[in-house]
Design a protein around this nucleic acid. Structure first.
Lengths: 402, 402
DNA sequence: ACTATTTCGTCATGGCCGTTTACAAATTAG
DNA sequence: CTAATTTGTAAACGGCCATGACGAAATAGT
């Protein structure tokens, strides 16, 4: 079932557009941008036939988008068919840029992505942030943001917004970090700490990772389950190209799905949660290793060296993941499951058991499990791209800034 | 995150509307219908302020809707505030009607619902359909449909479509029953067996039950999980007022979520699926009862009589349901869980254990569990209403039929 | 009782926007 | 070199909602 006809369509920012001629125009501007963006380069006539408007209408839309600096004319296409060749249009490489930032447990990173989706500037700083006061950390992040912004501006870009990925739960206001256990940040409003003037969005890094997979993945479908392990084990549910957030924004808590209902007690109050078997701590303990900084890298190395205990621990973790995912797949019938974040590095040793459980426990064709190509870059790229998508989704918002 | 701006909006029938003035007009017609329908009776001015158009624009929209027989003028409102009283508009009780039908294991039922949502005609036939050939069964259903249609026509209604609820999986074409184990129907195309001329939709009865809950429930939110047990145990996931169907249309298979991963083998290939503990068969066995026709009624009676074995069996089923729902709630963060279908009758004995598991295993405020008020009527009403909703969602479709 | 005020529904006007139609430009096919 | 085809633009057209004005129908105040 598709969206009801009567509901006001919304922009990516959540603002409803009135169903009036201006709203129609704005939607058509967006459709032109998306058509060109998807194809890389397209003539006006091609856009028209693709989005179902006439060439004349598309011409006026394109004129406006060029005036705003969102599209540019590349000149005549190489003629392939008979008839006058079209004039190629492309998304501008000098217009607005999305600034993405990531607060990791042991690093900070910022990048700028242009409307074409290319990374045009980058800066990062290594060093742990665990337990540090938010103010100096965000101060350092601000420095990196400024660096990236000036670098991007030298290339003719202007920042359209800032999106920050954090390892924790974010309040529905999209600015406040409600709970980031690995940083020990609680109820921290990043809006007052980051440079003003840029529209700001803060979200969980797993969510941005899933969106990156959706937007940048090789052949990622519009309905999938993205599983990542950074803080605990999180899943992002993507339905029809949209992130499912849940009532309180807590959807995707795969880590506390019961796997063995009579298993050991969990901090959440339950018993035998997935995290008890596949969480970082649990796997390290099962493998007989100490808890330390780059635990995932260590596990991957040891597993590569055929360390029996580590292999065994990862196999068991894969089994537990498979059981939890069986439930999720039964409930959601997604087109695929994608392993991202830290899990992508451990996938070779997790997958065998995981897929065995999944195929044993489900009938019919098994839901395919793939590994994210983006790996640890996902959240940062997803954050930057979320700003870019907002511009593509409603180009008229930049009109006033030009 | 809300729907991207650039995507073509769709009608409830899945047909995309071009983003043009005609599409805009159609959407505004729908918004007027929904506004009046939601409030029962509304003046033009009230509609205008509610949907954000001007009185003048609403006037022309209303004129058209009245001409099509979808709205009617009730005359001047009782004046409450100062100023000229408005003329009350109401959804017509003599326009199109939605015909809903239900193929149950031991009954057939058909009803007609008008645009106001009232049941205006009804017919049913009792007697088991288990294992019968589809042709005579659908023949009898056709007779009932004709009865209901003529009865509705006597009241000035005309049938706008037929929606059929079946206890089984339905192919994505919306016409073919892929697999109905309790009827023993497989790959049965109902389109060729039912009266032609009426737009036909076939869907799973659990899905229609969930939609009924969404549309008719007392205070049902737009994000909830509807659990029902008719064939096996099914859940319908409703996200943002939309049914989540999944890639193959199999979403909601709660019955095969692993509850005890090392439990007894299940027909699905897995072990310890929910159905092994809370399925009809399993509960009867645990209670020491024979399998028979009205098993749910029997269980409810015995439980009411304080039969210890039955109580125990239902308590354990509630525990298993609670474990499975913990996983689902963690994954989806719904606003509530609704127990419908056969489960609603057994709720008093299931709920204690179910809620205990849920509150023990989740942190923060517990996801509220409620019991469907509609009970076994849900699927039939949901089917009929789905036709009505399609008209409200795109009133222009009836223009040609008037 | 009478007037001022408020609100409702409608009409005429105007502006916005996509479509239709026509045409010049640019290329291939023959 | 001509006919056919396709592209992009311009002008006229038609649909749709907004604006502003007006009569109608009620209340509030004197």
């Amino acid at each position: 079932m598709t969206a009801p006809l009567h509901e006001a369509r919304s922009t990516a920012t959540g603002r409803a557009l009135p169903d009036t001629q201006q709203g129609m125009r704005r939607r058509n501007l967006a459709r032109v941008m998306h058509a060109v963006s998807a194809e890389g380069s397209l003539s006006r006539a091609a856009v028209a036939s693709r989005i179902g408007l006439t060439r004349a209408a598309v011409s006026t839309l394109v004129d406006e988008l060029i005036r705003w600096g969102l599209l540019e004319e590349l000149g005549p296409e190489r003629p392939s068919r008979v008839g006058r060749p079209g004039s190629a249009l492309a998304v501008s490489g000098r217009g607005p840029a999305g600034i993405g930032a990531e607060v990791g447990v042991d690093h900070l990173a910022v990048c700028a992505v242009d409307l074409r989706g290319e990374v045009r500037a980058r800066a990062e700083r290594h060093g742990t942030n665990r337990g540090r006061d938010p103010r100096p950390v965000v101060g350092e992040l601000t420095t990196l943001v400024r660096q990236v912004v000036t670098e991007a501006e030298l290339e003719g870009l202007w920042p359209a917004g800032l999106a920050v990925a954090v390892p924790g739960l974010v309040a529905r206001d999209g600015r406040t970090v409600a709970h980031a256990p690995n940083l020990d940040w609680h109820d921290t409003d990043l809006g007052v700490l980051l440079p003003a003037g840029l529209p700001l969005t803060v979200d969980n890094e797993a969510n941005f990772g899933a969106l990156a997979e959706l937007w940048l993945g090789d052949a990622t479908p519009r309905d999938f389950l993205h599983v990542s392990a950074e803080i605990g084990i999180g899943a992002a549910v993507v339905v029809d190209g949209q992130l499912l957030r849940g009532k309180r924004g807590f959807a995707g808590e795969l880590g506390h799905v019961p796997v063995r209902p009579d298993g050991p007690r969990c901090a959440c109050g339950g018993r035998g949660c997935l995290e008890q078997y596949a969480g970082e701590e649990a796997v390290l303990r099962a493998a007989g290793l100490e808890s330390r900084e780059d635990a995932v890298g260590l596990l991957a190395r040891r597993a590569g060296e055929d360390h029996a205990g580590v292999r065994r621990a990862l196999y068991d973790a894969g089994t537990a993941l498979g059981i939890a995912l069986t439930g999720a797949v039964n409930l959601l019938d997604p087109e695929s499951v994608v392993l991202g974040g830290a899990l992508s590095g451990l996938a070779p040793w997790l997958l065998p058991a995981l897929e065995a459980e999944l195929s044993d426990r489900t009938t019919g064709p098994v839901c395919p499990v793939s590994v994210s190509r983006l790996g640890p870059e996902g959240p940062l790229l997803g954050a930057a791209h979320s700003v870019v998508r907002a511009v593509l989704d409603d180009p008229a918002t930049v009109a006033e800034r030009v």
